[in-house]
Design a protein around this nucleic acid. Structure first.
Lengths: 136, 136
DNA sequence: AGTGCTGGTCTCTTTTTGAGACTACCAATC
DNA sequence: GATTGGTAGTCTCAAAAAGAGACCAGCACT
């Protein structure tokens, strides 16, 4: 099978999936992508993929997130089923956040993207510098 | 080789990459991820992966993007080297946007994530419904 | 009695995004 | 020749999201 044709078909199928065949207002794929494409979502998923963390630990781990956004991002990730929240009756009570099975399965493709970013951030930085130098 | 240990090592390495070994303020991986995790970036990259599009075509293709955000997202994608912008001297002049080699190489892992979203959006929808039903 | 740790919420300000009017140019139409 | 329509945007103002930091309750330790 011609790999070019195969790739084009794959692209078209994903394109249709992402545009929901023209019904943009109610596209589940875009909905899911937007849920994980927030500013802090991917970072927290990456952190929790390493091991479960407590609220205060995450706050110290990511010092430039505000407490408000940490609360809200964890809430959203929990709502979408990526993160499990468990309260332990210690004193004071501690709360542990961990990835669910769904979260772990999402981590795999996310990992691919982060690996790409790790390999290519020099190219992006160079492109940005060249663009800015050309008085973009 | 024990695959669990291998996976843990891979996770730790990516975690380090994303946290830049503690230097959060200047982490190139987070910088790159944030550049492509905007609300419209991934959608436009997916569209341009299918074929080049002109400005007005993209606007009609994604009817719920504002002209202002389309302009700005394309500008940002161009600045980071994912998108090529070419003006044709027709009357009136037309502008074509296409993926660069860097953009096409980024499309590959992005595609994985979109495929995951396509396969799992039911699970996310169910999780969300269950969470909301439990008066989250 | 004061201090510190837990996991948050509340309010205020700043930044980002969205909605829509407006521009300039030209071609074809009425 | 005035009107309409298509090109790719910009500009302004309102709404939504995010950031900064004060504040809270409960308990342990000093």
């Amino acid at each position: 099978m011609d790999s070019k044709i195969f790739n084009l078909k794959a692209k078209l199928e994903l394109y249709k999936a992402m545009t929901n065949g023209g019904n943009f207002a109610d596209c589940p794929v875009r909905d899911v992508i937007q849920g994980i494409s927030g500013k802090w979502s991917s970072l927290l998923v990456m952190a929790l993929a390493e091991k479960p963390y407590r609220f205060g630990e995450l706050r110290r781990l990511v010092p430039d997130i505000s407490q408000r956004m940490l609360t809200q991002t964890l809430y959203d990730l929990q709502r979408d089923g990526y993160v499990h929240r468990e309260v332990f009756p210690t004193k004071p009570p501690s709360v542990e956040y961990s990835l669910t099975d769904l979260g772990r399965s999402m981590f795999l493709p996310l990992q691919q993207l982060v690996q790409w970013a790790e390999l290519n951030h020099d190219a992006v930085r160079d492109a940005r510098a060249a663009f800015d130098a050309a008085q973009g």
